[in-house]
Design a protein around this nucleic acid. Structure first.
Lengths: 468, 468
DNA sequence: TCATTTGTGACTAAACATTTC
DNA sequence: AGAAATGTTTAGTCACAAATG
């Protein structure tokens, strides 16, 4: 029986007692889900404490726990012991980022492409592949994890980034996102937790949500995630994995220092976490930073799944990424590959292989690096006050903005000005944080001139951030 | 406190009480998991009833329920109310089927390939694509669900199989298995149930297991799944979906009659199921059967995800499949595509498109049909007693065998004779059934001569089935 | 620093539903 | 047809742990 009448009690959500059917916890969960997806409960809203709501509805405490849990695993809310339960920042919308048609009349600095100007080299390589005597061999079901010479070329490619491995421990998959989907399916279970940066790759957030894997945000500084914070979260929660982009974090452009990598590796080793290392930006970093040659895979070879896509470095349309793993993960990863892809097109892999073996790949990388340098220079002229301690050749920038206005408002007001960029809320792995940013893609326009036009629009429409 | 001493009680599994740590249910589940994966508890073994085990271990009934549940969602055991809990037929091993290297010294009639002899046509088409003026346009991130003219070609291709749709309701994905992975992720949740034939596509069983989706076996006859049985299962359980291959079931080669399709469609409509129609064999069936032109998608356009791969019909190495859906599924499916693939290689799709538009695709199909006819004829000479009421052009046959010997024994004894085939247990969606079969692939050898050699080995080593 | 607030997790109790005999 | 066997589901009790002020 309720102890108080609650009539004048300030509760952010007062579900209608009569709308509840049995089973109560399910009924309550779907009521809450509707409330959130319809926008009646705004992101960030604190929900009534479990005990209070239980009392109000005259049901047991754990009935509320269960109802909240359903909504939490679906990603609508998140709970912090001691503080309360809150509506998730991105509860009501998907943050999946893709190259879609909504940006058709816009300059698209949202989705990060990869200076597609270089694709003429790839077209040439494709033509060369057609002359191969073994062309027909590329068209059958054989070698689901990749043809031997494709794997060897892959190994030599990533060797430049500090990876040593063998053909039995590498597989060819269809791009980095595909590699992530495979890794999560192979090595994690629904309900598992993965540690991530506070701002992280938004499509990783989405795929984790779809797989019912919970992300645990861990604070970081300008050198990357803080080892002490990671350890603290591990003490608090049962965490199985960690996702990192040490060579250039998306979206923050943070490059992890070697010191930090070693410290984090110690925690990861002690806590027996599985590290997913997305090294898609290795090609930008190796060679540009003297001390780069230590991917975390090297520090934790038996605990790491190393993913290196060629979409950003060589060609985005050929879906080819390398995934490197230890013997202990081999069976599970290969099984997941069969179940999600069967195999990756050997024709595509052959073209990438041709690029690597002919040396054209390196030329493409040099070309893209030059374009990236030019694009970053242009960005700096438009936003001289923007911080520049991130990756100097990043394909995108992370621009601090004043915290007025909601993410949706800011994005759509810019879109109406003909510009597509993404607000930092899309990249939030957990609770809201006070600092707001825009991620500005530099590699997605047809030309640097178009980029300038876009940055001009942005400069005119964004309230300048007050540097403290 | 235990009521009986149990010392002389015949329990199939007597877990060591002292080995249990808290939490009991987890500890007990991993004990059981080990017992099964180590082979101490054989497939089919009946486990102690929950109450009995609870009594024996002196814990609450639902603690056992929870422990069993963990092992059930992992696929190690299955439970039937009223009957008991049993070790799954394929508990100790994966039934994922792929073209792998274990068959290197064998004639492989296990994995079903697709008469790769036709790939020279595809190589020609690939070369033609290289001459296209828009080749570079195929190498970027644009059009994640497929370029418009690829979709149009796809629509015209599947139009021959009775599908009418629009470019907004078709997407290009990387093969049929990829389409299944996407569909399950997009439209189902862990814990959902999908109705399937008693024997069904083994990689569908595996991907369902990985996604924690439960399969509900439904009895069928020579015309396909029985509508009355489907309805009965729906009454019993909360079932969300159904997976069917009406144009030629894998592995049973059953072709569903039009009458049966209509009856099943009625049940599916009434029960609001989502139908996953895998029509990979449409090219074998349309044209061969007069009344074929009714895929179930046509009967249930708003409830069906129609999947049509080109791997079997045109080329297995180019990973291209079409997925067709109603407006109500569009958003969810496209989101799943972004999160699993980002996109499918437009180069591969262009080659398939070239084949379709040039008319070469039809030639390839005719060639494969001729090969299939010849292969089926050869099979009949070696196994004249084998039933022939399935698909006359199937790329595999379903051979009844005597029920002596376990699946593993039979497969490995044949493998030691130089032949790889698969036992029907791999295709079991649920509990064991008395009838046993071998699936014999006819489309996987380099030549029909090699097929004959394989069938000869098979004939010599298999105890002939007693036709009743 | 310590009491209070708040969420978490394990196990228990009881009613329910289906199958078997 | 009905009792017994067997698995399922919901909600309750209770001890615990972190965050807050």
């Amino acid at each position: 029986m309720p102890i108080n009448s609650f009539v004048d009690y300030p509760m952010s959500w007062r579900p209608d007692k009569n709308a509840l059917k049995r089973p109560i916890y399910q009924s309550l969960a779907s009521l809450l889900e509707q409330e959130i997806t319809n926008g009646f409960l705004a992101p960030g809203t604190k929900l009534p404490p479990q005990r209070e709501l239980a009392d109000f509805l005259d049901v047991n405490l754990t009935t509320i726990t269960r109802a909240y849990k359903i909504c939490e695993t679906k990603g609508y809310i998140y709970a912090i012991t001691g503080s309360g339960t809150f509506v998730s920042p991105n509860a009501a919308r998907s943050v999946t980022i893709s190259k879609d048609k909504t940006a058709v009349n816009c300059i698209d600095l949202g989705f990060v492409a990869s200076f597609e100007q270089s694709n003429s080299h790839v077209a040439l390589a494709a033509k060369k592949v057609m002359e191969k005597s073994y062309l027909e061999e590329l068209l059958n079901y054989n070698d689901p994890t990749g043809i031997l010479h494709h794997k060897m070329a892959g190994l030599s490619w990533i060797n430049a980034f500090g990876i040593q491995s063998e053909t039995e421990h590498i597989a060819i998959v269809s791009g980095a996102q595909n590699a992530l989907a495979i890794t999560l399916l192979a090595l994690f279970e629904p309900g598992n937790r993965i540690a991530v940066d506070v701002f992280t790759y938004s499509n990783f957030i989405e795929i984790s949500k779809m797989y019912r894997i919970q992300l645990v945000p861990v604070l970081g500084d300008e050198h990357g995630m803080l080892p002490s914070e990671l350890d603290a979260q591990c003490r608090l929660l049962d965490i199985q994995g960690i996702f990192l982009m040490p060579s250039c974090s998306n979206p923050t452009t943070v490059v992890m220092s070697v010191e930090r990598k070693k410290e984090l590796a110690d925690v990861i080793r002690d806590r027996h976490l599985i590290l997913i290392e997305d090294d898609i930006h290795a090609f930008l970093t190796a060679g540009s930073f003297d001390d780069y040659m230590i991917p975390m895979f090297k520090l934790l070879p038996d605990q790491t799944v190393y993913i290196c896509s060629t979409s950003k470095s060589l060609c985005s349309g050929l879906r080819v990424a390398y995934i490197v793993f230890g013997e202990n993960f081999k069976k599970r990863i290969e099984k997941a590959i069969f179940n999600i892809n069967v195999k990756t097109s050997s024709l595509d892999a052959e073209i990438i292989t041709e690029l690597i073996l002919s040396g054209r790949a390196k030329e493409i990388v040099e070309e893209k690096k030059k374009l990236a340098q030019a694009a970053n220079r242009i960005f700096s002229t438009y936003f001289p006050q923007a911080p520049s301690n991130g990756h100097p050749l990043s394909f995108y920038r992370w621009l601090p903005i004043s915290s007025h206005g909601s993410a949706v408002q800011i994005e759509s007001s810019l879109q109406s000005q003909g510009l597509r960029v993404f607000h930092s809320d899309r990249f939030l792995s957990g609770a809201s944080v006070p600092n707001k940013f825009l991620r500005v893609a530099l590699a997605s326009t047809k030309s640097l001139e178009e980029l300038e036009t876009g940055l001009e629009i942005l400069q005119k429409n964004i309230s300048p951030f007050q540097c403290e």
